[in-house]
Nucleic acid binder design. Structure first.
Lengths: 340, 340
DNA sequence: TTGTAAGCGTTATCAA
DNA sequence: TTGATAACGCTTACAA
């Protein structure tokens, strides 16, 4: 049923090796036979088999991506960046979901390797550091692996990160500049290193102006709005609640705002909120969210580029740290703004 | 470098066909040699080549997905449904982005076919109806194609849809029940048939209670919050503005709410809003959004199931229409609620 | 229970 | 400029 190179060869009565050359536009075949063959190919509805080609070229032109959660808006934008640059470079993307489970992640990598993907990109790699080290150190270093947003502290292999520390500092500094002194941090999952780094930035900013750290002002959220909501409820129940909150990410911030509104606190008059990520919906939150933007698409782009460079044997930078930038919108206001 | 079945054969001094059988747990090989071979395989770090296997089995255990926009929360959840059920069934997913461009979509399908995916799922297929008909009618009907949310009216091939008409009716009826009489509809892109169907549901609900349709109450948005925002501004500028708005989707609703807030209108006291989709963030909007839920994951599941059934030659239903259900939250209130 | 050999659809290396 | 032919790594009759 599927027409192959041999069928075409038979149809035009030429050896199939010549057909192969003609189809690949090799200059080593006479123009007119080349055209004849190509015409016949489309006429017969020929579709080359990438599978067969891969077997001999040992390249699949495929990049495997494993992500912890596809529906996370931040990841979705990173993946978009990956997919777009991959396609431009002639690669396809195999996407798998690890659901944040290290063993799923490892299993997914295994599957991708069986499929002989040319490279693997881990978005928010959650496998243990040892497991990751093994991935990179293994004798079959064949498949390049690049990590976007390592979940753990220790750096292994090639990675693309955001300047979380700087982002945390800038966010906190912004709140300090507005006159806030009781500033809380709603963290992400305890396991995530990016949350720790953002918290470190927060702490450094506070200490830089001589403010003592109050452990009561650190609440733990998760990767969902619900986590931000609950954390915020706890903060608001404090005897001396914060007047401003820096959140692990935008979704957390959304949950936090919801909790504030639910008890009649207004943002930013009564409470200032800063997020992280700058997801596409952030400008439409009520009020539009002040946040720290990550270079989401660029992360995807850089990851693909790194994989391709690795494949080409070109020099690559081991660890990219992309800048995070403050985007001031309306969820932050001067301390005491409610009195105005 | 990569160890193959032959390397193992050599290592244990057994023919490689036996090795193949042993690795596939064929009962046709003595238990002890099977164990010997399997032990040796892991010892040598053998990773089967899915490529080589596919070449002979003519199955890649791969499903190609082409989606118009990965970062759309609705699509992301559908894709999650696809990916999860695919993995469970032993399939991998190749994801491509069409960016809503028909020619990209067709090109993506072409690529997927070259990769010999076992089936293709089009999420919000945007190619022209003729192009789609050709896809289904083509002589090489080999690769099953299933469409989730056809963008056009005409039904072709196999598809999974949501009950858009019913959803539009229920949403509008909900607003009517609350006493609203001037109800607007903010549509999606004019090209999208689902928006047309939702609008039809809206119109039917109005007509059922004897209300005349006012063309001024139909505004056009797009797939982004910004479209909802602009459309809402237009509606609010009307001499006799609506007291309630049914929106093409949740993101549109978010933009609409933003526009309302920006001019001091409160939701739901001054204006009731209903969305469509029930994306994960909808409960955290300010106020939490009343909306029509689509069975997003199920759509993905059903699509994969249909592809697999088609592959197995089993009977499949040509067109699934999944129910849409009203989720009442806080963005809708009784007409005149602002006076309370 | 094991081995031999053909073949999947290409590319690539030689010769001609 | 073209043609044989050998891979690529596997599955699968068919034989032994």
């Amino acid at each position: 049923m599927t027409v192959s190179i041999k069928d075409i060869a038979k149809a035009v009565n030429i050896s199939y090796s010549t057909v192969s050359r003609a189809l690949n536009n090799s200059p080593r075949v006479k123009l007119e036979t080349r055209e004849l063959i190509q015409r016949k190919a489309v006429e017969m509805g020929y579709l080359p088999s990438a599978i067969a080609r891969s077997l001999v070229t040992r390249r699949t032109n495929t990049i495997g991506v494993v992500v912890t959660k596809i529906t996370d808006l931040f990841f979705a934008e990173v993946i978009q960046g990956i997919e777009e640059t991959a396609v431009i470079r002639g690669y396809s993307v195999i996407l798998t979901n690890s659901d944040g489970k290290p063993d799923y992640e490892l299993a997914a990598i295994q599957t991708l390797r069986e499929r002989r993907v040319d490279g693997i990109i881990l978005v928010a790699a959650c496998a243990s550091t040892e497991a990751k080290q093994q991935l990179f150190a293994s004798p079959e270093i064949e498949t390049p692996i690049v990590i976007i947003n390592n979940v753990h502290q220790q750096h292994v292999g090639y990675s693309i990160e955001t300047d979380n520390l700087g982002g945390g500092q800038v966010a906190t500094q912004h709140l300090l500049d507005l006159g806030h002194r009781r500033i809380a941090y709603i963290a992400g999952p305890s396991s995530e290193w990016d949350s720790v780094e953002r918290q470190q930035g927060y702490e450094q900013a506070l200490q830089a102006v001589g403010l003592a750290l109050d452990p009561a002002l650190i609440a733990r959220g998760n990767n969902f709005a619900q986590g931000g909501l609950i954390a915020m409820q706890q903060l608001l129940a404090l005897p001396d609640p914060p007047t401003a909150v820096f959140c692990y990410n935008d979704v957390t911030a959304l949950g936090a705002m919801r909790a504030a509104y639910a008890v009649g606190r207004r943002v930013p008059q009564d409470l200032s909120i800063v997020g992280f990520d700058d997801i596409a919906l952030a400008p439409y939150f009520e009020p539009p969210l002040t946040t720290i933007a990550q270079a989401k698409r660029e992360m995807g782009e850089k990851a693909v580029q790194t994989v391709l460079d690795l494949l080409a044997g070109e020099p690559v930078v081991e660890k990219w740290v992309l800048p995070s930038t403050l985007i001031v919108r309306e969820s932050t206001g001067v301390f005491g703004g409610s009195k105005t």
